[in-house]
Simulated assay, not measured.
Amino acid sequence: MKKNHLFLLGRKADLIDHGGNKVDPLEIETAASDLCQKCFAFGVEYQVYGQKIALLMIKPITKKQLQKKLAQRLEKFKCPNIYLVTNEIPLTSNLKISRSQLAQAYRNGEYDEI
């Protein structure tokens, strides 16, 4: 609640803990939505920062263009550390996205980095 307005930012478990900052993946996805066909942000465990920010995309523009555009749209600490490409985004049996499953697939080497 803020000034009699209710803001729903997503599930607390989906927030990315990057260097002590809580980053909403939806904010990153919104900033990148016109730079690829589809995208999802998620956290990947990392000892130094808690989590690195990964962005999984279908048919993105080049990595250099992505970094430049996102640096203009997001605060520095919210910019992805890892850029990944895939041909399809896996869904759960309920036809939803599981960010923890995306992180596990990344650890298993299922996505290509750009």
Rank of each mutant, 00 (worst) to 15 (best):
M1N: 06
N4M: 05
L6E: 13
L9V: 12
G10C: 01
R11T: 00
K12R: 10
D14N: 14
I16P: 04
I16K: 06
D17I: 04
D17M: 10
H18A: 10
G20P: 04
G20I: 02
K22S: 13
K22R: 08
V23F: 06
P25Y: 03
P25A: 09
L26I: 12
I28Q: 02
E29T: 01
E29K: 01
A32W: 07
S33I: 00
C36F: 04
Q37E: 10
Q37M: 06
K38A: 02
K38D: 11
K38W: 05
C39A: 10
F40C: 11
F42Y: 09
F42W: 12
G43I: 02
V44P: 07
V48Q: 12
Y49T: 11
G50W: 07
G50R: 11
Q51K: 09
I53H: 06
I53G: 14
A54Y: 09
L56V: 05
T62A: 07
T62Y: 09
K64C: 04
K64N: 07
L66Q: 04
Q67C: 15
Q67N: 09
Q67G: 06
K69F: 03
Q72I: 01
L74C: 06
K78P: 01
K78M: 12
C79K: 11
C79E: 11
C79F: 01
N81Q: 15
N81A: 11
I82A: 06
Y83W: 09
L84K: 10
T86N: 01
E88D: 13
L91Y: 05
S93R: 05
N94P: 00
L95I: 07
L95H: 15
I97K: 07
I97A: 05
I97H: 03
R99M: 00
S100Q: 14
Q101P: 00
L102F: 04
L102G: 00
A103S: 14
A105T: 00
A105W: 09
N108F: 12
E110T: 01
E110D: 13
D112V: 15
D112R: 15
E113V: 14
I114E: 03
I114R: 05
